[in-house]
Amino acid sequence: MLRLILRKLGLLIPTFIGVTLTSFFFIRLLPGDPILLLAGERGVSPERYQELLVQFGYDKPVWVQYLDYIWNILHGDLGTSIVTKQPVVKEFFTLFPATIELSLCAIIFAVVLGLPAGILAAVKRGKTLDHTVMTTALVGYSMPIFWWGLLLIIFFSGILQWTPVSGRISLMFWIEPVTGFMLIDSILSGQEGAFTSAVSHLILPTVVLGTIPLAVIARQTRSAMLEVLDEDYVRTARAKGLSRFRVVGIHALRNALIPVITIIGLQIGVLFAGAILTESIFSWPGIGKWMVDSIFRRDYPVVQGGLLMIAAIIMIVNLIVDLAYGLINPKIRHTE
C-alpha cells in the first residue's frame, strides 16, 4: 500500500510542476506590462516602476523568476493581494471554510436523494417510476445552475419570502469565526436564532450546487445497480429466500457502491466549477466568488495564487479518492 501511495505521489509531481508553470505564466501572458498590471489602475512614476521591477524580481531572467516563485510557494508565500494588501494564503484560508461548508452540504444533499432515487429506479426498471426518476435526472444534469438559482430566488425568496437572498447569515448577528463553519459557529455563539438563520441562508445554495451531482449520482447508482442485480450471487441470494429488501440493500448495493463512490469523489472538480456560479448568485463569501471578483478587480496575484491552491486541493482529493478506491476494491489493489 505504501508503495502504491508513493508511486501515485510520484506521478503527481510532473502534473504539479505543470500547474505551477501555468499559474506562473498566467501573469506574464496577460496583455500589457506585468508591473503596471500589478500596480493597479492608477499607474506609477518611472522611479517607482524601477523599484517595483526589482521588488517583484522582474529584472531577473525568467527561469530565475520561476525558481524564486517555486521557492516562495514551498515557503507558503503565494503573493499579496493588490486590493486588500493581505497575503493570498491568508485570504484563501479565511474564505475556504465557507466553500467547504457549502460543498459538503451540497454533496450530502446529492447523496441522500440520489442514492435512493437511483436504487428505486433500478429496482423498478422500465416502470413509470424509473422513467420519472431518469427524466428528472436528465433535466437536472442539463440544468444551467446559474438560472436555476435565479428561479429559486424568484420563487422562494421573492414570492414565498421563505429564504433570504444572499450571504451566510442575517446581518443581525455577528458571529465570531471559530471553525469558519457558520452552522457550527452560530451554535457556539449561543445567540438565539443564529443557527436557524444560518440554515435558511444555506438551503437554496445547497440545492443549486447539489443539483448536478444529484443527477449524476442517481444515474450512476441506477446503472451500477442494474449491472449488479443481474449477477449470479444476487440470483442465488434471492433463490435462498432472502427478502427483497435484504438482497437489494445488502448484497447488491454493497457492490454497486464501488463505482458510485468514485463518481462522488470525482465530483469535486464539478463542485468547484459550480461553486463559482452558486457563490456569485448568492453572494456567498467563498473561494469561487473570491476568484471571480479578483478577476474583475484585476487582482492578479490573488487569481494566480488561488488557481494554484485550488488545483493543488483538487489533485490531493483525487489522489485520496484513487487510494480509497483501491482500499474498497481489492481487485484493483492486487493488480497494482
Partner: peptide, 22 residues
C-alpha cells in the same frame, strides 16, 4: 498526457474564466 493532466487539474469553468481574462 501530462499537459492534459495539468488542464484537468483545474476546474473547467475556472480555467476558462482565467483564459478569457488573459
Amino acid at each position: 498526457m501530462r499537459v492534459m493532466d495539468v488542464i484537468l487539474s483545474f476546474p473547467s469553468l475556472l480555467l476558462a474564466l482565467v483564459l478569457v481574462a488573459i
